[in-house]
Design a protein around this nucleic acid. Sequence first.
DNA 1: TTTCAGTCAATAAT
DNA 2: ATTATTGACTGAAA
Length: 473
Amino acid sequence: MSSSESVKSLTELVQQPCPPIETSKDGKPPEPSDPPASDSQPATPLPLSGHSALSIQELVAMSPELDTYGITKRVKEVLTDNNLGQRLFGETILGLTQGSVSDLLARPKPWHKLSLKGREPFVRMQLWLNDPNNVEKLMDMKRMEKKAYMKRRHSSVSDSQPCEPPSVGIDYSQGASPQPQHQLKKPRVVLAPEEKEALKRAYQQKPYPSPKTIEELATQLNLKTSTVINWFHNYRSRIRRELFIEEIQAGSQGQAGASDSPSARSGRAAPSSEGDSCDGVEAAEGPGAADAEESGGPAAAAKSQGGPAEAAAATATEEREEAPRPAEKAEPPPSGTPVPDAAAAADEGRPRAPPPPPEGPADGPGPVPNPAAAAAAAPAAGEDAATSAALPGEGPCRARDGADRSSALPSTSAPAAARRPSSLQSLFGLPEAAGARDSRDNPLRKKKAANLNSIIHRLEKAASREEPIEWEF
DNA sequence: TTTCAGTCAATAAT
DNA sequence: ATTATTGACTGAAA
């Protein structure tokens, strides 16, 4: 009823898309950039009649299901087509840092898997895409930034550094005093490849290690406990995310598919490790073979090596995987040597039986797909207990999908918007209608085509008009 | 408590 | 100079 009214105003609001400044009460100063920006952009054409500052949070709340994948795809296109960077876009439009933007654009999570907060950036992106002047505005920002930079850089003549005086606290210790405050910066831990390997192996055996296990791992690898904990948290979510994108891609090519069969995933799935590690998780997807893996299995076997049953029991009861190994790493230098035996130590878990882990400390870049071997090898006896325990809740990809989604039954992306009665549609609906949305039919092909097109498009653009963009100094 | 979702921010890679 | 990766931190949910 009245909702349409407000919606209408919203529509206009869209015209004024970039409110980087959240306004709010949130506790985080949005962007530390330049509060005192004397921008030219009025930034408030807002012809609206007062009230209704409608935070995007509200927009998010009533937003229909958005196609996150499609949105990011288009945003990427627009940005690259116009030579706009993620940093600028992120800070200006989304209020996020470059790294976050990169991540978001590269691996968008499906709408229904996002929390309210997580949807926000996507709504902003959609809003931005709908804004006819989006590019122009961003370009302006870019120009201004550059100008400011230049100014500051060789502030040679005249002006007496406008924003220079650090005034408070911020001491400019340029070149002198290498004793800046107790080195308050933490060095940022970087895990060595061997350490990551070891952690991944541990993950495969037990994605949710007990505190005790974590402690042991930390000790063996010579890492802080918190680092190990963080690593597991991060790794879990990363894996999960990986699954999401596979889900999306697979889904889009879905049934009608027909062409191909290849193991859809795999494409570039595992980022850091060529495929190895994830098998546990990915395997989950596979029908039969999947369960092999045994996590507890090998480990347990290693130690007790007696009856499988017992091993399983042990695992179930408590975990006590790790090995008794005499490791005694005799106090290695805290920092210097990354512990060659760290790998060995962790490795310990599943060493013997199955295929020899072909990787040594210096395993070549060889893309050798050995992962399968491990999985395959598994006898798959009966350690379900262990397995089940090991696998995270949801596990297989199927099963979900029909679940959430507050509004109706829109099976997948597109339709929802279409059947929306309210005029919200105008807000989120694509202006260009370049056929982006009604994919449903043969999305996969379309996606690929789109990619090619974008590439071609970009090339053409580059060829024809080479960077007319500001070169003004 | 613990896990998860989102991010930040340093730093690797391009 | 950008973009990608990733350990750590924050806040919310269970």
